[in-house]
């Protein structure tokens, strides 16, 4: 079944849902289906339960960070709304545009077909990062949604146990985001090159 057919079938069965096919231009041609967050749970339930689809196995959930197209390190957006001035570093870490995605890979054990790749997209990267959890539909998404919450900062509403899974509870950053800033704990690298060489220079205060 092609993705176009699947799309029209979902649209017929889940009224009001907004779907979009995201083409994949690479040789693998694994096109994916973008689902709006409001209807994600209903669509997921349909994909799992429809007799001829039966996508009963969610093999992988992963996150993607799409920062704003031009992410400038010097961009400082002061928010004075609540009378508090946030410090500059925080502003750089959270530009208001761009978005985060959660990607689900679905297979059917029963019908032996798949994968169908489903995407959910947050509204931005800063505050409106809530998505519905699909763990109630596929139990295997539990830990992987926690991992995305930990490393990307997407908040999955309806998740039974949404805690950090790799980093500790007191940790505040999201290390897999593209604008994550590591603590300056550079120490010594005998064969510094590329990224590490850049760190070496930054640490020693030399830019050349």
């Amino acid at each position: 079944m092609t993705l176009e057919l699947l799309k029209s079938e979902i649209e017929a069965n889940v009224p009001g849902c907004r779907l979009e096919i995201i083409p994949n231009p690479s040789p693998s041609g694994q096109h994916s289906l973008l689902i709006d967050p409001e209807h994600a749970l209903a669509v997921a339930g349909f994909l799992r339960d429809a007799a001829h689809l039966r996508f009963d196995y969610c093999s992988n959930v992963t996150g993607i960070d799409w920062p704003a197209p031009k992410l400038s390190g010097k961009m400082k957006l002061k928010e004075m709304g609540d009378g508090m001035e946030h410090d500059a570093e925080e502003e750089i870490e959270a530009p208001a545009t761009g978005h985060l995605e959660a990607v689900y890979h679905l297979y059917s054990m029963e019908k032996k077909h798949g994968p169908v790749i489903v995407r959910l997209r947050t509204e931005d990267r800063a505050n409106r990062v809530h998505l519905p959890s699909l763990t109630p539909v596929w139990r295997s998404a539990d830990f992987q949604e926690r991992e995305i919450f930990d490393l990307y900062g997407i908040v999955f509403d309806g998740h039974p146990d949404l805690r950090r899974i790799l980093m500790w509870e007191e940790f505040e950053d999201h290390p897999m985001r593209r604008d994550y800033r590591e603590p300056n704990d550079y120490e010594y690298e005998p064969t510094a090159h590329d990224e590490v060489l850049r760190k070496t220079r930054e640490h020693h205060g030399r830019t050349a």
Partner: peptide, 25 residues
């Protein structure tokens, strides 16, 4: 466990970073 890293990130009484000559890096 700190907000960004372990605190402290090392124990200076046990370990100190070796001196590095940056010009050779």
């Amino acid at each position: 466990f700190g907000a960004h890293d372990l605190e402290p990130s090392l124990n200076p009484e046990v370990w100190q970073a070796p001196l590095v000559n940056i010009s050779l890096a």
